[in-house]
Amino acid sequence: MRHTFARRFALAASAGMLLSVWGFPVLWALLTSFKTERDVLAYPPKVVFEPTLAAYRDVLFGASSIVPNLVSSIILSLGATFLTLLVAVPAGYALARLELPTKRASGFYVLATQMLPPVGLIIPYYLVLQKVGLLDTYVGLIVIYLTFSLPFAIWLLVSYFEDIPREMEEAALLDRAGRFRTLWYVILPQVRGGIAVTTVFIFLNAWNEFLFAVVLGGNRVRPVTVAMFNFISVEQTRWASLAAGAMIAMGPVMLLGLIAQKHIVKGLTVGAVKGGGRR
């Protein structure tokens, strides 16, 4: 291959473009969050300015503090993640070990439920939760979150369980481990990676969920996504605060994205490269 200077330059330049198209808007928001409201509206925009934490102070300790919303988001996301794993891990294992015809049918059912547009489900949820008095409760919303997290989690986990050769279980059975101990000591440790990927994804999706939260939540259960939305409709021009709020609201997921980068790429690709190909 010929690596001419021009070619390298072009590659470097396009990589730079790439970085700026995706990275810069986020960076811009980060910069904005350290400005004063006056600096935000300066024209031409100020790249050099005196950074201040005023916006953060306002968002965290001001009249409409985001802290309760953070708590709300944490409860919802952790609750949904825990519950999903509790159900999806055994289900994924069972599905991976089912006989083929049953497996294909169940696999298709799981996949189909994943395709339902949320707007289609939200009306019945609203009506049902209203009837049973679970509107604006954590229990109600967490159960509803299972609709999107459970099919996805099962789908993801199945492909991990399928990777474990059956002989591994057979060896454990011969070693007198029994069904439950085989699952616990031999199978689960080997799908740790898959469980990690699944956890990251469910958490991300639950944290970022908006539609269900805005309709089925309320004054008690109001995660950060809803709070952010309300922020803009109430206070049109306080952009520094908005940016600071967004940074706090999205901080956990951005951090997760950076730390669990490999897991996320894997989760995205598992479905595309292999998981979907087999069923």
Binding site: V26, M228, F229, W239, V253
Partner: peptide
């Protein structure tokens, strides 16, 4: 580059909508 590409994916769509609308 991968890290930069991860950023938009992990953001909540509603926040992305707000980002774009304002900033």
């Amino acid at each position: 580059l991968r890290v930069a590409a991860i950023l938009p994916i992990v953001l909540a769509p509603v926040v992305v909508g707000l980002f774009w609308r304002t900033l």
